[in-house]
Write a protein that binds this DNA or RNA. Structure first.
Lengths: 224, 224
DNA sequence: ACCGAGTGATCAAGATCCTGGTCGTCGACG
DNA sequence: CGTCGACGACCAGGATCTTGATCACTCGGT
């Protein structure tokens, strides 16, 4: 079942979307503001986010950036503002589509189909092999030698950023920014702490990592 | 370079799109009707198709179906008709986005960026050849004769400045500014030190550099 | 042809920074 | 009240950066 997270502060619209989407076979969750949206997205790992830009607590692009930090889930933006600058800002922040209110529900559903179709067609298998461990980013499960390994929320966020950039070096500034937020740029000790935990849980020999590598002075890298 | 195929039977619009897109660094090809569009797509394998629905020879959805038969290239539909039924038909036929004319060129470019960003996510990175070594600035990797070469942070910064100005002379003042900051204008010995290290790690014969050249009294130059 | 100044290359240390590992505290949650 | 995860501090070992010294080369001037 395809999971959709609807983010809107107006109860009527949220309700209407929920009814229409679930009538077409989607599993729907809703969040009334940006903070709860980010939490819900982390908890549910939806297949699509429908995001209203007029949220009370955060700017729309901030929500998009918060999501894009750790997931490439399709984001479909709803907005009352039709100005091109608004659209460009949202799209460049990482949104996949932009629909202005009032919108035709049939068109919205078609755009939802287009966005979810892409996600499925992209077909990048969400499971990643790390030595003897298997990481499934979609279901948030780690199996190692048949046994399940538990990761905490922070560990997941850190691991996901690395796994979504296979082979690529991710700077420590960027990692801190994406996992802990913009105010933790200097706390590199967090990184060391959690990288060590991830290595203990995933690497065959945590003292000699093969997949979760350190690039001294620069950042970390996941090698498949 | 990202290749875009523009399909439009109106020469003015095709011309305007070509100019705008190539001004933003895309490689543009055009086709005036559906049949030629399908042939061009098969020959060029573009990274994005911008498709006007009002073609003389085929219905727009037929063109989309013809493309979708063998490729999952992103398709961005342009159309003068704003009716929801049209949009739904095009999107369900396999289009990724639908923009109604008249459109804002900035918005179109943003949607182009959004569409290509998705495809390029699993993309390839630009690599530079230095003798027998290959340098990948995106992933921060250097391979030499199949073996991996480790560069330190400062070595990367210095090398990146040179590689981003291929063939161009970069003054020592400028290099020092970019790598060490504004307060190191006179420390040219740093440059010598690290240039020597880079040559040792990258040049076939470090004593006789072929790609990382010294311009006495002025600066350094990377020759591809 | 000789010399000295200026510049660049190379070598060899200390100083400094970074990392990994460990420990202890705090707050949330059951 | 007990447990777990997040947070913060510390230390030792090692890699990196910085600095100084030495030598080779070029280029004017004598």
């Amino acid at each position: 079942m395809i999971k959709i997270l609807v983010v809107d502060d107006e109860p009527q619209i949220a309700r209407a979307l929920r009814i229409n989407l679930s009538a077409h076979g989607y599993e729907v969750a809703t969040a009334p503001d940006g903070a709860q949206a980010l939490r819900a997205a982390a908890a549910l790992v939806p297949d699509l986010v429908v995001l209203d830009l007029g949220l009370p607590d955060m700017d729309g692009t901030e929500v998009i950036a918060g999501l894009r930090g750790w997931t490439s889930v399709p984001i479909l933006v709803l907005s009352g503002r039709a100005a091109s600058a608004e659209k460009i800002a949202a799209l460049d922040a990482g949104a996949d589509d932009y629909v202005t209110k009032p919108f035709d529900i049939g068109e919205l559903l078609a755009r939802v189909r287009a966005a979810t179709r892409r996600g499925n067609a992209a077909g990048d298998s969400p499971v990643t092999e790390i030595g003897s461990a298997t990481v499934d980013l979609a279901t948030r499960e780690v199996l190692r030698d048949g046994a399940e390994v538990r990761l905490t929320k922070t560990e997941w966020q850190l691991l996901e950023v690395l796994l979504r950039n296979p082979g690529k070096l991710v700077g420590q500034r960027e990692l801190l920014h994406r996992v802990w937020g913009p105010n933790y740029d200097r706390e590199t000790n967090y990184l060391r702490q959690y990288m060590a935990q991830l290595r203990r849980k995933l690497e065959p020999d945590p003292a000699r990592p093969v997949h979760l590598l350190t690039e001294p002075g620069m950042g970390y890298r996941f090698r498949p």
